[in-house]
Amino acid sequence: MARRHKIRIKTPQEIDKMRIAGGVASQILQELAKAAQPGRTTGEIDQLAADLMREHGCKSAFLGYRGFPGQTCISVNEEVVHGIGGERRIQPGDILKIDVGIVKNGFIGDNATTVAVGEIPVETKRLLKATEESLYAAIDKARAGLRLAELCGAVEAHVKPLGFTVVREFVGHGVGRELHEEPQVPNYRPQGKTPILEPGMILAIEPMVNLGSGRVRILDDGWTVITEDRKPSAHFEHTVLITDGEPELMTYRPKEATSEILGI
């Protein structure tokens, strides 16, 4: 894990700019989630993202990052993260993971959700619900004075008793002027001593949870991560500010995978 002095503490002025970037990222994500309808291609969703970013006076934090070719990451069903929008048509029963990262006024807003397209199997509904719940369990540990390990461990502690597994190869991260800052934020309790959380730290917390095995592999495009057993995976993410009190969601949006919404 990162040493304490490497984690960037944001100034009040930087935090204000992060709030703006986070709000824009959340608005764009919610619009894309509404557009995720049967018959549309993932490429059309990605193009809509580009249009919305232009309207909001921001740009993609992902496009060109280490060569990534998309405006957003769009991953379907067994695809975990880093999917590339293209000709694949969205079908009833799909689950669509949409990850939006934007740059506005030099700062990053980063968030993700999983969208159920029409009716999905009960076990997949349970996966989405548990994954979103695990995100909020981790956010509840995003408090000054706690160790990062407590936050990270909250994700696996929630989903494992329900029969689900966390992806260990890909993790959350600090975020600010750069997309990936220290510290890394895994979805399991890391070994060893981890940093104590302090006001002004900003973390992208993003559970990636699988219905089956936690094992994953990367497709030949060099980006798209899929579950090795081809079972569905869910992904939810918020950018979160550590404060002197309650954690602040910088990418606030209404919860999306509650029992009432999913009908379970």
Rank of each mutant, 00 (worst) to 15 (best):
87 E>H: 06
91 Q>Y: 01
92 P>C: 09
98 I>D: 06
99 D>T: 11
99 D>N: 14
102 I>F: 03
102 I>R: 03
103 V>A: 00
103 V>E: 01
103 V>F: 00
104 K>Y: 02
106 G>E: 14
106 G>I: 09
107 F>C: 12
108 I>A: 02
109 G>R: 03
110 D>G: 12
111 N>L: 06
112 A>D: 08
113 T>L: 06
114 T>P: 04
115 V>S: 06
115 V>C: 08
116 A>F: 15
116 A>C: 10
116 A>R: 08
117 V>G: 15
117 V>Q: 08
118 G>T: 11
118 G>R: 12
119 E>V: 11
119 E>L: 09
119 E>Y: 07
120 I>H: 10
121 P>Q: 04
121 P>I: 07
121 P>D: 08
122 V>G: 03
122 V>P: 04
123 E>K: 11
124 T>A: 14
124 T>W: 12
124 T>D: 12
128 L>T: 08
128 L>Y: 08
129 K>Q: 12
129 K>N: 13
130 A>S: 15
132 E>W: 09
133 E>T: 01
134 S>F: 00
134 S>Y: 01
135 L>K: 01
137 A>W: 00
138 A>N: 02
140 D>C: 02
141 K>I: 03
142 A>V: 06
143 R>K: 15
144 A>E: 14
144 A>V: 06
146 L>H: 09
148 L>W: 10
149 A>H: 13
150 E>I: 11
150 E>T: 10
151 L>C: 05
152 C>A: 10
153 G>F: 10
153 G>Y: 08
155 V>W: 01
156 E>L: 07
157 A>N: 10
158 H>R: 15
158 H>V: 12
158 H>Y: 12
